[in-house]
Computed example of a mutant assay.
Amino acid sequence: MTENTADSTSGIAPDDAPLARPTVSVVGPGQGETIVLGTTRMRVLEDGSNTGHRLGVTESVLAPHTPGPPQHRHAQHDEGFYVLSGTVRFTVGDTDHDVSAGTFVLVPTGAPHTFANTTDEPAVMLSTFTPDLYVQYFRDLRDTIADGRAMTPRGTLDTMRRYATEPAADR
């Protein structure tokens, strides 16, 4: 006779155990956590808490003439950017790409990159982070500003390093 118990080494539940149902996350217009960093307003659509930290998603509105961060590389996550409206300039190494609505840009781990809105119109983009690691980076920057401290280059660099991100050495 075989006992119907969970195998603690394989993680298999007994046949009669109820299956856990995943929770579906729905974030409607105007909902979600808002993070304001200078002239960029971000809305966190998924911070990783519903995906086992495999995926983070934000919507960012870049005001006209918003400079981007210094060109940098991520060592532990990929970033995807889907431009919803306006035009965003992505700089990858020495190459600029001015991309408009409907364009997707994937930045794999290790690729140097930055982005900016160089136009007179706002730009909106959806960003993905796999894994979700970088969502907390934006929260940390926001908290620095909220505490009355300036976003200095040194402070920003220290924060980036906590999230396996470094300035692109060749820039």
Rank of each mutant, 00 (worst) to 15 (best):
F81R: 01
D132C: 05
G148Q: 09
A123V: 07
D147G: 11
A13L: 14
V24T: 11
G38R: 10
T144W: 03
D158R: 13
E121W: 01
V105L: 06
P167L: 14
S127Q: 08
V57H: 01
G148M: 11
F81C: 07
V57T: 06
M1Q: 09
F138A: 01
T159H: 13
E59A: 09
R154I: 07
A20M: 10
D16R: 15
V26A: 12
T39A: 14
G110M: 00
A146R: 11
E33W: 05
F129Q: 01
T128D: 03
R41M: 09
A123G: 07
G56V: 00
T156K: 12
V83Y: 01
P67T: 08
V57S: 02
R162I: 07
D96S: 13
V107M: 06
T5C: 10
H74R: 02
T109Y: 06
H77P: 06
H65Q: 15
D132M: 00
L106K: 11
D15V: 12
V88A: 01
A164T: 07
V124N: 03
G110F: 05
N117C: 08
A101G: 03
T58S: 13
T39N: 08
T118Y: 11
Q71I: 06
L84I: 09
T23A: 09
A168I: 08
G28L: 14
R54D: 04
R73M: 09
G155F: 01
T51Y: 01
V135G: 08
N4V: 08
F115L: 03
G155P: 03
F81M: 03
H74A: 02
A17W: 15
V105Y: 05
S25L: 14
R142M: 11
R43K: 06
H113R: 05
V36F: 12
H65G: 06
L141V: 15
L37Q: 01
F115E: 00
D94V: 07
T87R: 12
G30N: 09
R149Y: 04
S8T: 11
T103Y: 00
A164W: 05
V61N: 04
A6E: 11
T91H: 02
Q31P: 05
P112M: 02
G102K: 06
R162N: 12
E59K: 04
V26I: 15
A6W: 05
P167I: 13
T34G: 14
D147F: 02
A116K: 02
H97E: 07
A63S: 12
T165K: 03
T91V: 11
R161D: 09
P29S: 14
F81L: 02
T39R: 12
P153C: 12
D120W: 09
R162T: 12
